[in-house]
Design a protein around this nucleic acid. Structure first.
Lengths: 123, 123
DNA sequence: TATGGTACTTACTAAAAAGTAAGTTTTATG
DNA sequence: CATAAAACTTACTTTTTAGTAAGTACCATA
C-alpha cells in the first residue's frame, strides 16, 4: 500500500503528471508486465498459459501484475462460469496501441544489448 | 547494494537478458533519469543547472542517478580543474540514440494521459 | 472423506529504491 | 580563523516492490 504523503509519493505523482515518459513507464513498469503484454499480443491467454510462458513467476506475482494492468485498462479479464475456474486475459485497444511503442523500445534495446552476459559493470 | 543470489535478483537478470524491453527499461528506470536525459538533449549542463531544472530532487538522488546513467554509458561526466568545482554532464552518442525512443514513449503517453488528475483509480 | 484442477487471497519476509540530514573536499576571500 | 561556492559522500531511515508459503473457493470424481 502506498503511503500518500511521503516525499517519495509526492515526487512520483508530480513526475507522472508532468512527464509523459514517466506516465507511460508507470503503466509498464513491473517485473513481469512487459512479458505479459508481449505474450498477449496475438491472442487471449488463460492464467495458467501465462504462468507457463513466464518461467520464474509466482501465481501471486502474476495475479498482482495482471490486476494492475487491468486497473490501468491495458487488458481485459474475462471470467467464465466454469469449474475448474477459467479466466482469460486479452489486450484492450489501449493495450494494443502500446505494442508499437514496446516494439520501438525493443528495437533500441536489441541494438545495444551485449551478446554476452556482461552486467557486472553495474553496482 | 543488490544481493546476488536472491530470487528477486535472479529473475531480474533473467528478464534483462531475455527481453530487450526490460533491458532498456533497466537503463532509464529511476525516479529522475528520464527528466535528466530530457534536460541534457540540447546541451551539456552543470550539476547545479540540472538540480534547478528538477524541482524536488536532492543532491544525493541527483548524484546517484547521474552516476548510474554514466555507468550505463548514456552520459559523460566532465570534471574541470576549477574552484568552486565545475562538473558538466552531456549525452553520449548512445544517450542521444535513445532520444527518439523517449520521444516515441512520450507521444503515446501524451495521447492517453488524462488532462485532469485522476490517478486514484490505482491502488 | 480425499484428491484433483484452476485461479486466486492472505500474512508475512526479503530485497531494492528513494529519501533525510549531516559531513567533506577544493580553493578563494575577508 | 570564518564564510562562501559547487559537487559531492556517508550513515541512516522510510517507502516500495518482489517474493515465500500457506490457505481458499468452486466444483468434480473416487
Amino acid at each position: 500500500m502506498r503511503k500518500e504523503n511521503s516525499t517519495n509519493s509526492i515526487n512520483r505523482e508530480a513526475l507522472i503528471n508532468q512527464c509523459p515518459v514517466n506516465y507511460t513507464l508507470e503503466l509498464i513498469g513491473g517485473r513481469w508486465k512487459t512479458l505479459i503484454l508481449f505474450n498477449l499480443q496475438n491472442k487471449p491467454l488463460r492464467f495458467s498459459e501465462l504462468k507457463r510462458a513466464l518461467p520464474g513467476v509466482t501465481e501471486k506475482m502474476l495475479t498482482q501484475q495482471l490486476r494492475e494492468l487491468e486497473a490501468d485498462n491495458l487488458l481485459t479479464r474475462t471470467v467464465y462460469a466454469e469449474v475448474p475456474p477459467r479466466v482469460e486475459y486479452s489486450l484492450t485497444d489501449l493495450g494494443k496501441s502500446l505494442q508499437p511503442v514496446l516494439i520501438n523500445i525493443a528495437k533500441w534495446g536489441l541494438s545495444v544489448m551485449p551478446t554476452y552476459t556482461s552486467k557486472q559493470a553495474r553496482a
